[in-house]
Design a protein around this nucleic acid. Structure first.
Length: 281
DNA sequence: CGTTACCCCTGGAGGC
DNA sequence: TGCCTCCAGGGGTAAC
């Protein structure tokens, strides 16, 4: 579900709630996520403090400190397709009535951070020590799109050795992180690039436009509060349907807002892709 | 190495 | 009402 903007919005939502706060208790009701949650996770977290919450790709990384403030390890959290975080203030009666897919609670003095994930494609892993970048799931991640290092030049060099359709390459988190199924389609529309085009057949000038389109699409969505369609829940518990007005996503059969042509849907590697066959080449 | 198909899982929507 | 099929924001893994 969440792509980079939703994860970033969730990060900003929970940071002021949990930073510097001690975890009184970690409760795991359902450990069977994509990777099984370690049985000793509650022992690792109990009594420790959340030092910081950072984002790497679609992962939220919680720096966890020991009582004396020294770093103890990292909590890797990925929301998968359907995961969401909720904050329930202390005393909220909902804390005592977890729902069917409320798999994990982190209980603080001021409230409870609750992970809900119906499809259980999410991930919650404990990584001891300082070096979270060394974790296999993190070490293999590609470039962050909202950095200066990611530009048309970088993108052109990366796409040059890929013959697959560009849309799938943009969604490959080992190349560039954070671009999911919605924003891949939206970014390609903004750049006027067909999702079906072989990645290595996009020239430098168009890579400039595409890199810029990815940045602005993601940044706009973050500014709008993230873009969620079905079951995303903001960290504060409100429903978050941010980017309600996608240009192409889920608009098959509708008119292109730029040229009036009919938006088309195709399937690529099992995922739906939307594009304007007239605007995007 | 790069590409593709498949798989994990639940729930909602729509057809009959 | 029920049952069936298809679809959904991700990504790791295996096989070619």
């Amino acid at each position: 579900m969440p792509e980079l903007p939703e994860v970033e919005v969730a990060r900003r939502g929970i940071l002021p709630l949990v930073q510097g706060a001690a975890i009184r208790e970690a409760t795991v009701r359902v450990p069977r996520l994509r990777h099984a949650i370690d049985a000793d996770l509650p022992q690792q977290l109990g009594g420790r403090t959340v030092i910081d919450v950072v984002r790497r790709g679609k992962y939220l990384l919680l720096a966890i400190g020991a009582n004396d403030g020294t770093p103890a390890g990292w909590l890797l959290l990925h929301l998968g397709m359907s995961g969401s975080l909720r904050w329930l203030a202390a005393g909220d009666p909902g804390i005592g009535r977890p729902g069917r897919h409320d798999h994990v609670d982190l209980t603080f003095a001021d409230g409870t951070l609750r992970l809900n994930d119906p499809r259980r494609f999410g991930t919650l892993l404990w990584h001891p020590g300082n070096d979270v970048a060394a974790h296999p799931l993190i070490a293999t991640l590609g470039i962050e799109p909202l950095t200066d290092a990611f530009d048309g030049r970088w993108l052109h060099a990366a796409l040059r050795r890929r013959s697959a359709p560009v849309k799938g390459v943009l969604m490959d988190s080992h190349t560039v992180v954070g671009v999911g199924n919605i924003y891949a389609s939206e970014s390609l529309f903004r750049a006027g690039v067909s999702p079906l085009r072989a990645a290595n057949r996009i020239g430098p000038a168009r890579c400039d436009r595409l890199a810029e389109a990815i940045k602005t699409t993601l940044a706009d969505a973050i500014a709008a509060g993230g873009s969620s369609i079905r079951d995303y829940v903001h960290a504060d518990g409100g429903s978050g349907c941010f980017q309600v007005d996608c240009a192409v996503y889920e608009r098959a059969g509708a008119d292109c807002r730029r040229c009036g042509a009919t938006i088309r849907a195709v399937r690529q590697s099992g995922r739906s892709t939307y594009y304007c066959p007239a605007c995007q080449r």
